[in-house]
Amino acid sequence: MGGAANKSEVDVLSSFMRRLRPLTWNGFGFILPERWEVTGYGLKPAGGRFQFHDRAQAMGELSWRTLAGTPDLPRMLGDVLRRYLEAEQPDAVADFRVPSCLRQGEWLLAWHGPGAPLLAGLWKENPRILLQWFIPGFTPERLHQVQGLLDTYHPNERDPKQWQIFGLGLSLPKAFTVESLDAQSAYCTLRLENPASHQVVARRIGMVAETLGGMSIGECYRRILNRSHARVLAVVEESFRGVPAWRLDFERKGVHRMDALSGRWWQGQGWMWHDADEGRLYSCEQCGPPRQPRVDLADVWR
């Protein structure tokens, strides 16, 4: 009996960890290997990067940037390897001519030898974006693992666009872009916005009992929205995608064009629910100028 309990506990944990594996961002998507976690990120308009660790060590870094011209990918990867060797293994630079290369689908992999990093690059014409993986410490096993990772690559350019990270998942029209990503321990917020300032915010909150501290989920959500300068108008207990949830109608001061000057309030709506299997609170809300078409939050959530 105890064994069955342990098994179900493992199942719950693995289902929770499964949710952390998809990483889908602006133009690309991967399924991360088990135990890999995003431990760092930098987001800029023309590019960005994600860092990954398993429990013990750094596993790699994925970076992307938009370029005006078409890059010479083999030469670019060779230059990165050469610069790395010059800095870290000066003795090995003399032996370095051309890196070992391997083509896997659209990806080009390059490496020099044990200890030096393994690089993978992909150039996409539309949109003009260069994707690069930097994997520290080449070994044949690491190469095999990275090949598995690259097999999971899928473009993410179609409408609606997918956004998946830290267990959050949204599927939004292409016009929405990331406004901010805030990842704290057991509390992640992903904020996307379209050019008309229509905002969709997804949250994922862990340590539910400690977070709630005896209050209801509705009250917790009200406080979160109040902290983000919203005025909550109604709190209703309903269901969202078939699970019990709290719906909050709120308003927030407009931040776009004349609305910002006149202090006009924009209407918003949000949902918060508890995923008991995962032990997480999730919320998804939207707020925007009047007459802006709203998205269906039930469809948006992944």
Partner: peptide, 13 residues
């Protein structure tokens, strides 16, 4: 394991 956090979430906290 006790709080159903990922390793690095737990570590950061």
């Amino acid at each position: 394991a006790e709080h159903r956090l990922s390793y690095h979430e737990s570590r950061a906290m």
